[in-house]
Write a protein that binds this DNA or RNA. Structure first.
Lengths: 270, 270
DNA sequence: CGTAGTGTTGAATTGAATCAAGTGTCGTGG
DNA sequence: CCACGACACTTGATTCAATTCAACACTACG
């Protein structure tokens, strides 16, 4: 594994030098004028369409997919997309903003199982048992596309490339989870943190945001729960990486100053 | 989570009940005489058929599935089913024995990502990238069914219940991986080990083997790699659980003497 | 029968957790 | 618009669970 654990796309050159938090302000090409929270955007005109489900579909196929997708009103920080044990009915594609999934035990202790950025699919853990296995909530002002699963299944039979692509999305989730398994089972706090940042970086790059400068929408606590570390440790690692000149942190704003050396840190665990 | 992390019995319950309408009740005794390594057993007569892919298929559908499944000669301990980066072409169903999947880093350090028992499906991590993300090898004398993926995809379009079931199998893998994520990120060595044993127990129960007395086909080292612990720690926990009277271990032979208290140990981490 | 791999046990070490005591930041309502 | 309270974050001192290092026993297989 030469790359970060979450790096499922090679880092592309980010067009935006600054992604100062407000993702919705994105001047440039015509399509981009459309506010990403806007619930009327169709799959065909969505700027994420080649990262998301429509990937590999032709125009008429996209139209069919469009017909089954429901676009809800935006979510604000803390709003739940669904809760643990809710009946499974849809998978969701993040259109803007970000979400976290977490598992809550009876005793009330929560553990974050994943973060989701634009173009990524949420809710596949519910397919098997017909209940969502965890809860997921918005980390900031966000919007999603609701894809009723039974309809997706039906359409998949009609459109081989949709079926294949959805299998691929699920397979990717499995492969990614296995890498996280490896990360948690044998990497140090610093290695995990470096990997986490590199993973975010390439996921931002994937949606044409800066891979080196971004806003963390999750708390240190969330990161800790995800990486199996405490808040204090995450905080300490951040300051230590900053002292070494690898990153620069100002509260939620983070800049990766030396990706190469961050990769080296991660590689030490291999 | 009232149960062990690997206890997918709960998860599958929903599916089983819904599916029960579709399948005829298993005749039982007669079928079991057939040697499980026997490569000529068809899906229809396989004693695992209601746990494995054919679940939820009717007779004529099973016949179609049968036609695409290839049954290879048995594997012996250490034989590889596939290796990391091999071209993805099939998923595999374990017919007998057991396998481990592991990720090998450039430096040669391996990390076990999963164990597979009869009736379970291997190789789904390769779907997305068309390459297997890890290697998997037999832990003992074992046999598998080779299910060429492109054929499975094609057949899935014809047989809605097969498509649904395969989505469910992948969804189950995702849900299970997330539980392992939780396990590794916040449970102690003892809690992880208890959960591991309980998970094996319910998986053995699923294939009608004793849930309280079984042989570990993997080494302490494998278990450690899987749980993010060292060999020494696993060994110590085993002896300590034995001293407390919760289990009885004799080398690879293990007996769970007090499942209830094992669950309690696991629950402490919740 | 010997050797490599597997498993156990003990003692010393250490990385991250815990405990504790702050400061900083944000959103709300007065 | 400011003040307040709740939450988020940082930093330091101490503790502890699990690793590491080390030595030895078991077993299984050619």
């Amino acid at each position: 594994m030469a790359n970060s654990v979450e790096n499922n796309a090679d880092i592309e050159e980010g067009r935006l030098t600054t992604a100062k938090g407000n993702i919705s302000v994105r001047p440039s090409a015509t399509v981009l004028k459309i506010c990403p929270h806007n619930p009327t955007v169709s799959c065909a005109s969505c700027r994420l369409n080649e990262l998301c489900l429509p990937l590999a579909l032709n125009k008429s196929e996209i139209h069919k997919l469009d017909a089954i997708v429901e676009r809800n009103r935006p979510f604000t920080k803390g709003d739940h997309l669904y809760r643990q044990s809710d009946e499974f009915k849809s998978v969701y594609a993040v259109r803007s903003g970000s979400f976290k999934s977490y598992f809550l035990s009876d005793s009330g202790k929560g553990r974050v199982t994943g973060f989701y950025l634009p173009g990524e699919i949420i809710g596949m853990d519910g397919i098997a048992s017909n209940k969502y296995a965890n809860s997921t909530s918005a980390l900031e002002h966000s919007s999603i596309c609701d894809i009723p699963f039974s309809q997706l299944e039906k359409l998949s039979r009609e459109l081989p490339s949709l079926q294949h692509h959805f299998f691929a999305i699920m397979g990717n989730e499995i492969a990614k989870d296995q890498q996280v398994h490896t990360l948690l089972s044998s990497y140090s706090a610093e290695e995990r943190t470096a990997s986490f940042l590199l993973g975010l970086s390439s996921r931002y790059a994937r949606v044409s945001l800066s891979p080196t400068r971004f806003l963390l929408s999750m708390t240190r606590g969330d990161i800790g729960e995800y990486l199996g570390l405490t808040v204090e440790t995450v905080s300490r690692i951040f300051t230590s990486l900053q002292k070494k000149g690898l990153i620069s942190v100002d509260n939620r704003e983070i800049e990766l100053l030396d990706i190469k050396r961050l990769r080296d840190i991660f590689s030490r665990g291999e």
